[in-house]
């Protein structure tokens, strides 16, 4: 019980702080924090596979970008309202996940390489299919989202909108990972052979997880395009896919807050370093290296060591 109430208290504090943020933060910070929520959500989609199912997908940017591009193109080029464009984006991104899900037939390093290559298909498509996607320039002038005459135009309004979506997602995600299905994913991560002998068609479970992950990534993509008001091929790039998996790990894989903490640390650090140091990409590269070598269980993992109520695992035989 003690452990559980600790988590609830922390979550309430975090939500209260998030709700109060617009009262104290200036536009720069508001932009950054909104960005952290959106990337955190994308990192969460990575972590459903990474932290729970044990699959390392490196094509999450594809679902993110396809959702964002679909919404942007429908809204800007064809003039559809948000109520059509946003769900269409979600559906398009998720359908891509339904298609790409066949990658779960493979495991380990093959899965990693295949998802990298699949990710490049979308990047290549949005980059080269310029007549439809705008090529390098992308799609600009995406209007703010508006539903039934209400436009979520102001930065603060959109902040609260994103926050609401993220909290709802986190809540739903929590139910998902605590469900028998969620447990089955952790079972597969632990031992796929045993899961099969217990009666699970593991590939189908992984496939379902892959599609759900694609749905979450697509949601992040739709939120992103309305936040950014434009979209270009960078959103579909391999770099984004790697960065968000790093966020999930930096924060703490297998947790809900971890990916958001990771997004905060990563984006905050990049913003800060790039303000005074020319080689900021190199610094981010160093963060990758340092995380892998010294903090593979992430910030949440580091905190857990000192957290009350949870002992260190005893020595193994």
């Amino acid at each position: 019980m003690k452990v559980r109430s600790y988590g609830v208290v922390m979550a309430l504090i975090a939500i209260a702080a998030a709700l109060a943020a617009p009262l104290v933060a200036d536009p720069f910070w508001m932009t950054l924090i909104t960005q952290i929520y959106i990337y955190g959500l994308l990192a969460l989609s990575v972590d459903l596979l990474l932290g729970h199912a044990g699959l390392y997908s490196l094509c999450q940017a594809s679902f993110f970008a396809v959702a964002a591009y679909t919404t942007a193109i429908l809204q800007v080029r064809y003039g559809y309202p948000t109520i059509v464009a946003a769900p269409a984006g979600l559906i398009a991104g998720t359908l891509l996940a339904v298609l790409y899900g066949s990658a779960v037939r493979t495991r380990g390093v093959y899965f990693i390489l295949i998802t990298i290559a699949l990710g490049y298909i979308i990047w290549g498509a949005v980059y080269r299919w310029a007549s439809f996607t705008g090529g390098d320039n992308g799609i600009t002038n995406v209007p703010p989202p508006s539903v039934a005459g209400f436009s979520i135009a102001s930065q603060t309004a959109y902040y609260y909108f994103v926050l609401t979506v993220v909290i709802l997602c986190a809540f739903g995600y929590r139910i998902l990972i605590r469900s028998p299905f969620g447990l089955s994913l952790r079972g597969i991560k632990g031992s796929e052979s045993r899961m099969q002998s217990l009666g699970y068609r593991t590939t189908m479970h992984l496939y379902a997880a892959f599609v759900i992950s694609g749905l979450i990534a697509s949601l992040a993509g739709v939120l992103y395009v309305y936040y950014n008001r434009f979209i270009n091929p960078v959103a579909a790039s391999f770099q984004i896919s790697v960065e968000v998996s790093l966020m999930a790990i930096v924060g703490g894989s297998g947790t809900i807050v971890g990916p958001f903490i990771g997004a905060g640390v990563f984006l905050g650090l990049r913003n800060w370093v790039s303000s005074f140091f020319e080689l900021h990409t190199a610094v981010m590269g160093a963060v990758f290296i340092a995380t892998v070598l010294w903090a593979p269980s992430g910030i949440v993992g580091l905190v857990e060591r000192w957290r009350p109520g949870i002992g260190k695992p005893k020595d193994q035989p």
Partner: peptide, 25 residues
């Protein structure tokens, strides 16, 4: 499943042969 509790280990075996293994909500 070394990362899970004993009860969770057994739960996986128990729901593995019926439809409850697909319950996600």
């Amino acid at each position: 499943f070394t990362d899970l509790s004993l009860a969770e280990n057994l739960a996986l075996a128990i729901v593995g042969t019926d439809r409850r293994k697909w319950v996600w909500n």
